[in-house]
Design a protein around this nucleic acid. Structure first.
Length: 272
DNA sequence: AGCCAGGTCTTCG
DNA sequence: CGAAGACATGGC
């Protein structure tokens, strides 16, 4: 099926570092695994995307996943019209980025893994985890394509430490094990986390092993859709220091700082 | 070959 | 308390 949007660019989203299971297939086509589903997407035109799924599945899953009810065009227009030259350039460059609504557990584990790894290494590590602990499935729509779902909390909680070590986690293996066990045991309830305030969510997330302030913000932003979250990693910190002399004012972007952060990150990572 | 990666935890002063 | 130091592995 086809969908139309003035702010939806597959390449930008795939290269934005917010998701790790969206990969190019050539010819402006991308594969994506999320929520136990496999889908292929093609950028037909700037404002048109083709999806391999049915309309029912789109309405059930992908419409929400890609946050299609939110008006990103307006946010980008605001940045383009504003006084901030860096953000103007970032908005022009990254136009079509969106904040995905990803599975909370997958986001949590993925961003624990992300610390001190580059993005290709994060991706291959996650794929190994999925192949070892996820479920193998086949996609009816995409010619019987085989894929692996992201592991459940229980499957990771029950993994042996020895076994986990074969997936390239490095020293993060104990973080993954402890955090998965905490989720599995119910020490933290990811499903009701959404009811808490943003501030309280950050506090709760940081009780988990391997989760500090940066990962907590990423989970809040990409897994719980707190678009006011503003994760500061080494790249964003570099921008705040070098471009804004450590005096960046978030206030004009109150309530959607995470979108601004995403445009900043994509711009700095994909230009010289 | 060797450096460095979307940080966090522990330890030290 | 804030600031260093350690940390496993793989991609480039």
């Amino acid at each position: 099926m086809l969908i139309y949007s003035n702010n939806f660019n597959l390449k930008h989203i795939a290269d934005s570092g917010q998701c790790f299971r969206m990969n190019p297939m050539g010819d402006d086509k991308y594969s994506l695994i999320a929520y136990d589903k496999y889908i292929e997407l093609t950028q037909v035109k700037d404002n048109c995307i083709k999806l391999s799924c049915s309309e029912d599945e789109y309405n059930l899953i992908w419409k929400d996943y890609f946050d299609m009810d939110f008006n990103y065009e307006q946010i980008v227009a605001g940045l383009l019209d504003g006084q901030d030259n860096f953000l103007k350039n970032a908005a022009r460059f990254g136009c079509g980025l969106r904040i995905l609504k990803q599975d909370i557990f997958e986001t949590l584990i993925s961003f624990i893994i992300s610390q001190r790894k580059n993005i290709p290494a994060i991706k291959s590590c996650i794929e190994m985890l999925c192949m070892k602990y996820g479920k193998r499935k086949t996609s009816r729509e995409c010619g019987g394509k085989e894929y692996y779902t992201f592991p459940s909390p229980e499957s990771l909680a029950n993994a042996s430490a020895q076994d986990l070590k074969t997936t390239g986690l490095g020293y993060r293996d104990s973080y993954i094990l402890k955090t998965s066990q905490a989720v599995s045991k119910g020490d933290i309830d990811l499903k009701t986390l959404k009811r808490l305030s943003f501030e309280e969510t950050l506090i709760q997330l940081q009780t988990l092993s391997g989760v500090g302030i940066k990962v907590a913000n990423c989970v809040a932003l990409y897994g719980l859709h707190h678009i006011e979250a503003f994760p500061i990693d080494v790249w964003i910190a570099r921008i705040l220091k070098d471009i804004y002399n450590d005096h960046f004012n978030l206030e004009p972007y109150n309530g959607f700082a995470g979108i601004v952060q995403q445009y900043m990150f994509y711009y700095i990572r994909n230009t010289k």
